[in-house]
C-alpha cells in the first residue's frame, strides 16, 4: 500500500492523477493514518525525485547521433589529456590553490644572492689568473664590442586570458586591450576553455633566459604571475577586490613585481 501511495503522490504532483486516484489517496490515508508522515514528506521530495528520474533516464539514452566534427574535437582532447603527464596538472592546481606566502619571497632571494656572490668570486679568480697578453687582447676586443656576458638576454613573456564564457560575452573586450597595452610586444592569448588554458600553461617555451607566464582569469578576477628566473620559480597573485575597474591597478602591480623579479 505504501508503494501504491508513493505512485499516487507522484501522479498527483505531476498532474496525472485522475479523480479516482485522488479518492484512492484519501481512502489509503483513512485506512492507514500512519502513512500521513510519508505522504507529507514525499510531497517535499518530488522535485528531487523528478531530477533523479531524468538523470537515470539519461544514462540509458541512445537516440542522439554524434556529429563528426565533435568526434574530431573529442579525439583531439582525448589525445591531449591522455598523453599529458599528470604531475604538470597537479603542479598547476598546486600553484592555483596555494595562496601567496610572504615568507617565500625572502627565501627565494637567498639562492640567487648566493649564486651571484659565487659568480663574482669565480669571475675575480679567473680574471686574476689570466695571462697578461691574453688579458690585454681581450680588453681591446671588449673596448670595441660588447662581450657576450654584457649582452642581456631578454625575458620571454607570455600573456593569456582565461574566459570560460567568452563566446557568450561577445566582442566587447576592453580587458584584452588593457593587457595588450601593458605588454604591447606580446601576443595576448585568449582561452575559452580551462582545458586549452591548461595546455598553454604547461607548455613552457625553450628559452635561455627568464620566462614568465601572466594569466588573468576573468571569472575569478585573479591575475597570476608564474616565472622561471635563473632556474627558480616565482609566483604572485593579484586579485580584484571589488570590481573590474581595478584591473589596470593590478596590472600595474604585476608589472612592478615582474620588474622587481627581473632585477
Amino acid at each position: 500500500m505504501r508503494d501504491e501511495l508513493l505512485e499516487l503522490v507522484m501522479n498527483k504532483a505531476t498532474g496525472r492523477a485522475s479523480d479516482e486516484d485522488l479518492r484512492r489517496i484519501d481512502s489509503i490515508l483513512e485506512l492507514e493514518p500512519h502513512l500521513w508522515d510519508d505522504y507529507n514528506q514525499w510531497h517535499q521530495e518530488i522535485p528531487a525525485l523528478r531530477g533523479v528520474i531524468c538523470l537515470a533516464a539519461a544514462t540509458t539514452e541512445h537516440q542522439h547521433q554524434l556529429p563528426e566534427q565533435i568526434r574530431m574535437k573529442l579525439r583531439a582532447r582525448m589525445r591531449t589529456a591522455l598523453s599529458r603527464s599528470q604531475p604538470n596538472y597537479d603542479r598547476l592546481m598546486e600553484l592555483v590553490n596555494t595562496p601567496p606566502d610572504p615568507q617565500l619571497s625572502w627565501r627565494w632571494a637567498v639562492t640567487p644572492a648566493v649564486s651571484l656572490v659565487a659568480i663574482v668570486v669565480i669571475s675575480l679568480v679567473l680574471f686574476n689568473n689570466r695571462p697578461d697578453a691574453e688579458s690585454a687582447a681581450q680588453t681591446e676586443v671588449a673596448n670595441n664590442q660588447p662581450s657576450e656576458a654584457t649582452v642581456s638576454i631578454a625575458p620571454v613573456i607570455q600573456v593569456a586570458l582565461l574566459d570560460t564564457v567568452g563566446v557568450t560575452r561577445g566582442a566587447d573586450d576592453s580587458t584584452r586591450s588593457q593587457f595588450q597595452k601593458a605588454w604591447p610586444a606580446v601576443e595576448v592569448r585568449q582561452f575559452n576553455s580551462s582545458a586549452e588554458f591548461r595546455d598553454w600553461f604547461i607548455q613552457w617555451p625553450a628559452a635561455r633566459g627568464s620566462v614568465c607566464k601572466i594569466f588573468y582569469n576573468q571569472g575569478s578576477g585573479e591575475l597570476k604571475l608564474i616565472a622561471k628566473i635563473n632556474g627558480e620559480e616565482k609566483a604572485a597573485t593579484f586579485a580584484l577586490k571589488n570590481d573590474v575597474s581595478e584591473l589596470s591597478q593590478i596590472i600595474q602591480q604585476a608589472q612592478a613585481r615582474l620588474v622587481e623579479w627581473m632585477q
Binding site: 592546481m93 580551462s194 582569469n217 571569472g219 575569478s220 578576477g221 597570476k224 570590481d243 573590474v244
Partner: peptide, 14 residues
C-alpha cells in the same frame, strides 16, 4: 556584472 568574484580553483574545477 561580475559583482562576485569566484576563486580560480573553483573555475578550473567547475
Amino acid at each position: 556584472g561580475y559583482s562576485k568574484t569566484i576563486p580560480m580553483n573553483i573555475v578550473l574545477e567547475e
